[in-house]
């Protein structure tokens, strides 16, 4: 298929996934801010979120004070923030529009309808209560788009590039969610198990739809180590790093070409390290350090995928 087409599909999927993950991240913050706690703790949560997605400076310049209302305005509806949910939905739609000939009409219609709806939603300031509904809506639209892709798309190269984008984005995002919360939670909760801690950890699990999963898998108290194990190493957890890299590797192999050998090797190596990795070793290195390393490696894979397939060097 055309390199440019593959590129648009890949980014359509990435932006759709990014909008969803942003909604998940914000939802967990929002839920935590409803817990009985001091305003400085609430602020700390938003600062951590803004920092981890690399937008703290841009935010400070435009909004100044870190308040839930400001943070949500910036991260949800701000058209000038290229990482806001609004901008991600728009970018997903622009990419889809550029290749709508490759998409099934159902995929195009669901991506386009999402954009048309958020334009209306974006017009009116949401009340506090509506914010929660809005995050739900973003997640639902993303589920819908993924479902339509799953249900209507031919299993050809276009399909593999779409999922490559999805899993690269998701692996990065799960790592970020885990990093920001872990960072924030651990210094305070030397011993996990207090009521506040319980809510914090369960909010984190909820943000990646893993709360019930945790209960099923461990049938025990929520501990930081198990949360990390679940989200890093379990291959049966759909948003875990292991699962994402495994899928990424599968789709990469399916589209391999004459110049992608090194990219495959690196993806395979990363997959193996997750498959055979132990949570003890990760904690010995430090979870934060581990996650930073991981994000570096997926960024490298993303750049390599672009170079090998999407911006064709032929001439």
């Amino acid at each position: 298929m055309l390199s440019r087409t593959a590129d648009h599909l890949y980014w359509m999927a990435r932006y759709t996934e990014r909008a969803e993950n942003l909604a998940r991240m914000l939802e967990v913050n929002y839920r935590m801010s409803l817990l009985p706690q001091g305003p400085e703790i609430v602020e700390q949560g938003w600062v951590a979120t803004l920092t981890i997605i690399g937008l703290m400076d841009a935010f400070k310049q435009r909004y100044g004070a870190v308040t839930p209302a400001n943070a949500i305005a910036f991260l949800v509806f701000d058209r000038d923030n290229p990482m806001s949910i609004y901008s991600c939905v728009r970018a997903a739609r622009e990419n889809a529009r550029a290749v709508r000939g490759t998409l099934t009409s159902e995929i195009w219609e669901s991506v386009n309808a999402t954009w048309l709806e958020i334009r209306v939603a974006g017009m009116r300031p949401s009340s506090e209560a509506e914010v929660g509904n809005f995050f739900e809506w973003v997640k639902h639209r993303s589920h819908l788009i993924r479902g339509v892709i799953q249900g209507t798309m031919l299993r050809d190269e276009a399909w593999h590039f779409t999922w490559l984008g999805t899993y690269l984005e998701r692996s990065d995002s799960t790592a970020r969610i885990l990093d920001v919360k872990y960072h924030l939670l651990l210094p305070r909760g030397e011993k996990a198990g207090g009521a506040a801690d319980y809510y914090q950890w369960s909010a984190l699990l909820n943000s990646v739809s893993a709360f019930e999963v945790y209960r099923r898998v461990y049938r025990d108290l929520i501990t930081p180590r198990r949360v990390a194990e679940l989200l890093v190493l379990r291959s049966d957890m759909p948003r875990s790093l292991h699962r994402c890299v495994e899928q990424l590797y599968t789709h990469l192999i399916a589209v391999r070409n004459g110049q992608s050998a090194e990219t495959e090797r690196r993806a395979g190596e990363l997959h193996a390290s997750l498959r055979f990795g132990r949570i003890e070793d990760i904690f010995e290195l430090g979870l934060h350090e581990y996650l930073v390393q991981f994000m570096g490696r997926t960024r490298d894979l993303g750049e390599r995928v672009s170079r090998d397939f999407l911006v064709s060097a032929a001439d």
Binding site: M1, L2, S3, R4, T5, A6, V99, G101, T102, E157, F161, V255, N257, G258, F309, L310, S312, A314, D315
Partner: peptide
Amino acid sequence: ELVEGQDLYVEDEFLYMRTTRG
């Protein structure tokens, strides 16, 4: 395929499109 000019190039008087497989 829906192509733009940037997707195509001419070499030895033959026309090619840039694809993920070359």
